[in-house]
């Protein structure tokens, strides 16, 4: 076995063994190591404590630490599995794993459901859906009349809420996504397919087992 994680690499407070993370996610060990380099950058961009705070997440996404965005907030909260206000390394890798092109479709569908279940009731409710549409309109130049918004939300609910109980449950969501696969296109990040090749500057600073290097060759 090679020393595939160098002792010269700093360990953050929430550091986890890349081999364990690779075994639980679609990533290889070398890709987890590349993600660690990325994680170190992100987690020390404002507060140098090796943990990703919401401001650092927003800075990375928008180049602005103060930009408010409903969906970025929800994604941060879902990544922050321990709910301690920061994204630790293991949380970062496991959560990004869901966005990997090879991640199970079920995981992507479930993650998207939790994203849209703003109040975490186990259902996507009509008011939540309207709130999300309004949030999108607020950040974009798209202008829709209130009548149009109501009509779109009504139509979507009519199609998705097949039990007609005024809320979308997980089974209804799965069925709706199977009819409209584009709904989870945001759940796949092509970048992750081979992050160590897409971001060679990250992998260049890590040590990888020779066998893995030969696989990449």
């Amino acid at each position: 076995m090679g020393c595939y994680f160098s002792k010269k690499v700093r360990k953050t407070p929430g550091y986890e063994d890349p081999t364990v993370l690779a075994s639980e996610t679609p990533f290889t060990v070398s890709e987890v190591e590349a993600l660690y380099e990325l994680y170190l950058k992100l987690s020390n961009s404002i507060i140098e404590d090796g943990l990703i705070h919401k401001e650092e997440f927003q800075l990375a996404l928008f180049r602005n630490e103060n930009k408010k965005n409903l969906f970025a907030d929800r994604i941060f909260d879902l990544f922050d599995v321990k709910r301690n206000g920061v994204i630790e390394f293991g949380e970062f890798v496991r959560s990004l794993g869901v966005f990997h092109p090879n991640a199970p479709l079920e995981d992507k569908i479930a993650f998207a459901f939790r994203l849209y279940d703003l109040r975490q009731t186990g259902y996507i409710e009509r008011e939540e859906l309207k709130e999300m549409v309004l949030a999108l309109l607020h950040e974009s130049d798209l202008v829709l009349s209130d009548d149009m918004i109501e009509s779109i939300v009504d139509k979507t609910f009519k199609d998705a809420d097949t039990k007609d109980d005024g809320r979308i449950d997980q089974d209804e969501w799965k069925a709706f996504v199977s009819q409209h696969p584009s709904l989870i296109k945001n759940m796949t990040l092509p970048y992750l397919k081979d992050i160590s090749l897409a971001f060679p500057s990250f992998i260049a600073r890590t040590e990888v087992e020779e066998s893995e290097l030969s696989e990449l060759a």
Partner: peptide
């Protein structure tokens, strides 16, 4: 209209995680 509310929502910049991977 055939607009789907979830498709509209997906246009949000908050969904675009590519910023995480850009060299700073």
């Amino acid at each position: 209209n055939n607009l789907n509310a979830f498709d509209i929502i997906s246009f949000s910049s908050g969904f675009d995680l590519s910023g995480l991977f850009e060299e700073k």
